[in-house]
Amino acid sequence: MTPEELIAQLRDPGVPFTERRDRIARLPDSRATIAAALDKATAAADWEAVEYLLMAAAAQPDPGYVPALSRALRSGERQVPVEDALEVLAAIADPGTVGLLKDVALTEHDWDEFDQIGMKAVRALRRIRTPESTSALAELAERGSENVRALAGETVENRR
């Protein structure tokens, strides 16, 4: 399956959500195709396609998605499915994303009144068990929002 075929299959408007989820569950190992499709969709700022692709990426996590997800998160565009991207990055737990996750946790979003984005970024950092991630969490425990500080501080304490 090509990246274009995967995107078309996932965004088929005639398919209900439950069938779409079942299609994703039945996909053979498609990590390379998902990575290529995410790359194309993020480069084109096709956030609807990215949202569908993140469903597939969550079912088949792979470090090959990191460049596209990083580009999406750094774009600052409001339509980016940030929370879904953070969940996939948490599943991947790539040490190369520590700086990105710290930046996301420190960014305030006016539409995120309960700081779910910052909390998901901290949860993704918690999955990365390196000195760099512990240092980033310690910084977030000092500089983040109230919720981010609490969760990051708890994690730092538990790692001691």
Rank of each mutant, 00 (worst) to 15 (best):
R78M: 10
H109T: 00
L73A: 03
R31P: 02
W111H: 14
P81A: 14
R20L: 08
L106H: 09
V98T: 06
R123L: 14
G96Y: 00
V50I: 08
Q116N: 14
R71P: 01
V98E: 01
T18V: 10
M55D: 14
P63L: 04
T107M: 07
A105E: 11
D62W: 00
A85L: 11
L38H: 10
T42E: 05
L54Q: 06
A41V: 06
W111M: 05
P131C: 09
V80R: 09
A44D: 15
K102V: 01
F114Q: 13
L106R: 05
S70Y: 03
V104W: 06
D29G: 10
A58E: 15
I128A: 06
D110Q: 11
W111T: 10
V88M: 05
E19H: 07
Q79N: 08
Q116T: 04
L86D: 02
D110L: 05
A90T: 02
A37S: 09
A59D: 15
V104Q: 05
R11C: 03
E83S: 13
T130L: 11
S75P: 04
T18F: 02
A72C: 09
L10W: 07
T97E: 07
I128D: 04
K120E: 14
A72P: 10
A93R: 06
R20H: 06
A85P: 02
L100F: 07
V122C: 12
E51M: 06
A72T: 10
R78Q: 13
G96W: 00
A121G: 09
P131R: 12
W111I: 01
R78L: 14
